[in-house]
Nucleic acid binder design. Structure first.
Lengths: 291, 291
DNA sequence: CGATCAATCGTCCAAAACGATCTTTTGAAG
DNA sequence: CTTCAAAAGATCGTTTTGGACGATTGATCG
């Protein structure tokens, strides 16, 4: 996963001299390792973090194999969303990647991207379908493409120390909607959790087992459909008890959790948006750091 | 089995060239033994402590055990499959990526990887679960990880000319099993089709629309469950007619298509394995090239 | 056992990266 | 407009790297 880059590659990518890049490395602005012979080697994720933190534009993104737009990239989020809608509708995977990678590199938090670009675009495509202006396969394909974009974004996020707390999550049995869980994963990762998706269509029983096995500090579940509300409530409350027992926060999200349903179950937090999830995760981290 | 490693293995594990590693050995930076014939053999612990001494903690001890897949023997594929099973079971996404990427780079066809490594590993994990030796979440997570590996493999495949024929496909309504369709996509891409997944949970009606819109030369469908066999057969036969009308081959796959079911429907080809799919796709290309 | 073939050997060399130093550009102050 | 210091870029001789080469070794199989 960790791809290493030479100073020259990174310098070319962001359009500065090799000297400057080496200086920045030596000043501690970019983490790097040295080979036994003394050559600097940068991790791709560290280079990305630096680019993001400096608001650098990429002159030659292909130097580090990034599918980034070659030009000025100062889009508003709304503009980006509209571009993404078109790219999704036409099934242009490469363009989807470019748009989202661009936004990420220009410094937007992952949670913002998920809320205001990905989810927003996806909803709009759902609207188009309801108006008869898009086919179902376009909506399904958009879902697939978003998922791929999310997976790719995942590879660009900075690495976390192995001391970082673990988060696990997924979707429940009967609920094949993977996208939200994929987004939750990258949002939590950026918030500082070593987030791992268990997959979709998970029976309740195995989630208990997973908590026992991995001792996560946070467990997320995305619920987009509920077959039997009564049984759901009972199972969910049992899950919350297991979570309590192992000191894990239980975070829920998803449109199926209406106010009525929420009243019948216990949980640590319900999140309407990924920004909420991000905030909750960060405050959880802070409160744990002080104890 | 043996606790000693070749220079090539260590070089791969830490991402440097074999030449450099050999030089470092000869400079005394890494202790090593020599066989009677003069080949270097490094102890696992020496390699690890060398990595640590360079101020690098990123490599977990297991990463160094990564085998070098440069041969083409069946033995290597089997070995890789076993390594992959372990990586999937422990949820090590980076290691999964590495195993499969190595195999691809060493020249194995994508179809072979899908059949003999990915699918084989996945089936074995299913077996482990049935024997009670693995939890359901491990099986679900393995599915998720395989999917990510497939998506990543997709980005490594060579680009195709825009003149290449189009293939589209996906899974049907009620069938959330995405993995097979993802593998079909990369296999077809390698065979020379500009393959695009439409997504999963597709109603029949929208597939007709997609064929009309994209005029594919090939349409694949992965069927892992059938709710209403009679209606399925009727819909599938209608789909085959649309495919014929637009000169598209209809390729089916999936365990739900038993012999009985197959007898009741029409299609261009049924594929048990991805190698079959690859062969069919290539012969289709050839026959079209000559006309 | 002997044949076979991938893996590894040692060596070589061009390209890349090193550190150090020097020159140019930038931006703010007088 | 000039001055000046800090940042960025350019230059240079030296060292390191990574890939290529034919020759040798080691694992495997009949």
């Amino acid at each position: 996963m960790s791809e290493t880059l030479s100073p020259k590659q990174v310098a070319r990518a962001i359009g500065v001299s090799e000297s400057s890049l080496k200086r920045w490395c030596d000043q501690g602005l970019i983490p790097f390792l040295k080979t036994a012979g003394g050559h600097r080697r940068l991790a791709l994720q560290d280079a990305i973090s630096f680019i993001r933190s400096r608001g650098q534009e990429l002159a030659n993104p292909e130097a580090i194999r990034l599918p980034v737009h070659t030009g000025k990239t100062h889009w508003t989020l709304e503009r980006a969303r509209d571009e993404l809608i078109e790219a999704l509708n036409s099934g242009d995977e490469a363009l989807c990647r470019r748009i989202v990678t661009d936004l990420y590199l220009s410094g937007h938090p992952v949670a913002t991207l998920c809320d205001e670009v990905l989810t927003a675009a996806f909803h709009e495509i759902g609207n188009l379908w309801e108006c008869g202006m898009a086919q179902i396969y376009q909506e399904r394909r958009a879902c697939e493409l978003c998922l791929r974009v999310v997976f790719q974004l995942r590879t660009l996020l900075p690495q976390l120390p192995s001391s970082a707390p673990v988060a696990i999550g997924g979707t429940l049995d009967g609920d094949p909607y993977t996208l939200a869980t994929g987004m939750a994963e990258i949002v939590l990762w950026e918030a500082g959790f070593r987030a791992m998706t268990l997959g979709n269509l998970l029976p309740f029983a195995t989630i208990h087992k997973a908590i026992e096995a991995h001792h996560p500090r946070l467990m997320w579940l995305s619920v987009s459909s509920i077959r039997d509300p009564q049984r759901f409530a009972a199972e969910m409350n049992r899950l919350f008890e297991t979570a309590l027992k192992f000191n894990a926060a239980l975070v829920l999200g998803g449109a199926a959790l209406t106010e009525d349903v929420r009243r019948s179950i216990r949980y640590s937090s319900y999140c309407d948006t990924f920004t909420h999830l991000d905030s909750f995760a960060r405050s959880l981290l802070l409160s744990q750091a002080t104890t």
